[in-house]
Write a protein that binds this DNA or RNA. Structure first.
Length: 304
DNA sequence: TCCCAGGGAGGAT
DNA sequence: ATCCTCCATGGG
């Protein structure tokens, strides 16, 4: 099928944007989307309210994000496009002005990270379930590995959307994933498979409602998430930040622990809890964003 | 309390 | 070529 009926949306933002760096840092909002030779990233997104699934491809043009949308033969209304635009703004963190953050902490020990990672945005899930499962997969793993696992789930159970370059897949909804759980072996999730199945079951049965967590305080939502099997404090924070956009939740893993211990405790190794508390105490509502920049900074400088 | 579950790359030997 | 290590969570 040849796709030539793309609708173009142009999204502006305040402050710098670096789309490639943002996506390839590997936030658990969704697995890193595939890109074509022109560097456009493809994914399937569901339009709020009308629930129409469309293929979207995005690229950066100056400080703007260009999103091209194809709905195949389905008509998109003005309201659809408006809702999609709003969702995409949140998905790529365009609603936050990073300059505010850089300015507020310009004399902070992590200020060098702003130069190093300038334009990195917080991505936020357009599909809560996909983000929750992705967060579970990140545990005890590396970016390339969990992204592979999440992509395999999509290929095994998602809806297929052909493009001129490759097939693009949606993430299955909880009911579908649970129904096809016998196929999960092929996704090679290792011992995380059990966590994925149990959590999926609780969500498919409406024991836990991810959508309801958006509007309750961060720590209350965290308590709910911790009831799910395979979700501990770190993974819960990842979903709060990258799934729900709660920017006061800093996921604290071994890298952040080392970084915080070095910067704020003169290198004396502190516990994960102490390091998380330090981030919240120091960065307040920006704690999650501080974590995002610290992570990218530490990882990119420790490779060399 | 410690140890293991599964995955696969990257570093050390 | 083979071994060791990394990494969150839960359970024995």
């Amino acid at each position: 099928m040849v796709m030539d009926n793309w609708i173009t949306l142009s999204l502006t933002t305040k402050g710098p944007l670096n789309l490639k760096r943002t996506l390839e840092t590997g936030h658990s909002s969704f697995p890193i989307p595939r890109s074509d030779k022109s560097g456009r990233y493809y994914f399937v997104i569901t339009i709020p309210d009308s629930h129409k699934k469309v293929v979207c491809r995005v690229y950066q043009k100056g400080a703007k994000l260009i999103a091209e949308v194809s709905s195949y033969n389905e008509q998109l209304s003005e309201n659809d496009l408006k809702a999609l635009k709003k969702l995409l703004r949140k998905t790529f963190g365009l609603h936050l002005n990073m300059l505010e953050f850089y300015t507020e902490f310009k004399n902070d020990p992590i200020a060098p990270a702003f130069k190093h990672c300038v334009g990195v945005r917080l991505t936020c899930a357009h599909d809560h379930f996909e983000s929750l499962i992705s967060s579970i997969l990140t545990q005890n793993s590396s970016i390339w590995k969990w992204v592979g696992q999440a992509r395999r789930i999509k290929e095994l159970m998602g809806d297929k959307f052909p493009t001129d370059h490759f097939m693009v897949y949606s993430f299955p909804d909880p009911q579908k994933l649970f129904r096809y759980k016998h196929l999960l072996k092929e996704a090679k999730l290792g011992y995380r498979e059990e966590y994925v199945i149990k959590s999926t079951q609780d969500i498919a049965n409406y024991q836990i409602r991810l959508d309801k967590l958006e509007n309750i305080p961060t720590m209350e939502a965290k308590k709910v998430l911790l009831k799910l099997k395979g979700i501990g404090p770190k993974v819960a924070d990842m979903f709060l930040l990258y799934g729900l956009g709660k920017i006061d939740a800093p996921p604290t893993d071994i890298w952040i622990q080392r970084g915080v211990s070095k910067i704020f405790f003169k290198g004396k190794e502190k516990s994960l809890e102490e390091c998380r508390e330090k981030l919240v105490e120091r960065y307040g509502k920006w704690a999650g964003i501080a974590q995002l920049y610290m992570f990218d900074w530490i990882r990119s400088t420790s490779k060399k």
